[in-house]
Write a protein that binds this DNA or RNA. Sequence first.
DNA 1: ACAAAAGTGTTCCCGATACACCCATGT
DNA 2: ACATGGGTGTATCGGGAACACTTTTGT
Lengths: 229, 229
Amino acid sequence: MINNYSAEDKVLLAVDCIIFGFDKEDLKILLIKRDFEPEKGKWSLMGGFLQQQENLDEAASRILRTLTGINNVYMEQLHSYSKVDRDPAERTISVAYYALINIQDHNEELIEKYSAKWFSVAKAPDLIFDHNIMVRHAISRLRYKTSKEPIGFELLPPKFTMRQLQKLYEAILDEKLDKRNFINKINGMDILVKLKEKDMNSSRKGSFLHMFDEQKYNRKKADGFSFKL
Amino acid sequence: MINNYSAEDKVLLAVDCIIFGFDKEDLKILLIKRDFEPEKGKWSLMGGFLQQQENLDEAASRILRTLTGINNVYMEQLHSYSKVDRDPAERTISVAYYALINIQDHNEELIEKYSAKWFSVAKAPDLIFDHNIMVRHAISRLRYKTSKEPIGFELLPPKFTMRQLQKLYEAILDEKLDKRNFINKINGMDILVKLKEKDMNSSRKGSFLHMFDEQKYNRKKADGFSFKL
DNA sequence: ACAAAAGTGTTCCCGATACACCCATGT
DNA sequence: ACATGGGTGTATCGGGAACACTTTTGT
């Protein structure tokens, strides 16, 4: 016989997404106000259930797309949460994912449809179930990961200034960084291209825009280089 | 209504355990020879299904206990694997855990009952499903984690020599370490107690036994100290 | 006497950090 | 002219890596 597994122990498997964005100074997360039970009216992460024909990564992408309209987003599986009574309605295991998006890319209509809102991580409201814990874990993972892989760029527009990049890392790490040391480190890795173009919004002098050169990074990585911040 | 979740999307949730041990020179994993379908006769990780009244950590502990007879083992959740056809018999999502045990503690009868066997990680056979990938991930996580937290001791007997500890880290990292630098680093952290007792098995001269001082470590940690190797 | 593992400090180097002034521009 | 943020280089410090000889004891 092929199928000797018992059917009695099946469970509902949810996927919840911690969606990170970065806005000028603050690291933010996108939360929804639940218009359904349980916990209707409270803030929570965007989530959904795993479907039969998809894997977890696909479910996470689908859920993210539902709320933001964006495809091809950097996402990573975080952890699975399984406390027996974590969801009062029914036994549910949740696999948390975090996503990094360029905050300008979100879709206004969808945000409205789901009563979603961006919150600075420092000022986010209490969330339902164990979602607060998930967010804490996600921030901790984000700190680790952004210091070891060049994924911070996912949170910025394609063209960004050094200052924006520094502000981003300051927001993620929640500490001030030295301007010269930061730029020296970044330039030392030689994975950005400096454009002729300047961003004139932030100062009178203007500041040069840069782009992450993914090809160059991949070549260097294949050669033994590793990103380190 | 309380329950507005659909029942159609429930899935089987498995827990698979990568059980690490250390034996003189080698990092090992405990594998079982499946005496049930699918893939009967092939090697695999020890696993089981999540039950309704337990969370994932508890399921992992239960599964480990079933095979080894040991309780209170260091375990950590690794990752969830969800490829749609990963298990040919039925859609199953698996949450992998890794465990660190003192290899001397295992129970011979249980090992025999499950046709289990210890393999050096370097010489382990091919495993069913995606278990090879799980093992690779587990080793990678183990490397990271043992360099940041004093969990390597879980793989040793309570009393161990500096040389054993070094061999352990060499096996985990798969690289030779310098004897003096290693001992200097360990002693610099001041989290071991050196016993008067010597282990006379490894050499004519004998070498002093040490123990991990968990209280001391916890006090230092609360004071801002962090383990680093 | 010799073989086999244990034990023990110092030097050197590189990467991380600290730090201050001039520039360009809009008002 | 001045206010605002942009851009740049060097000196110091500390942790990590390299490195070799003596000790003990069973044979």
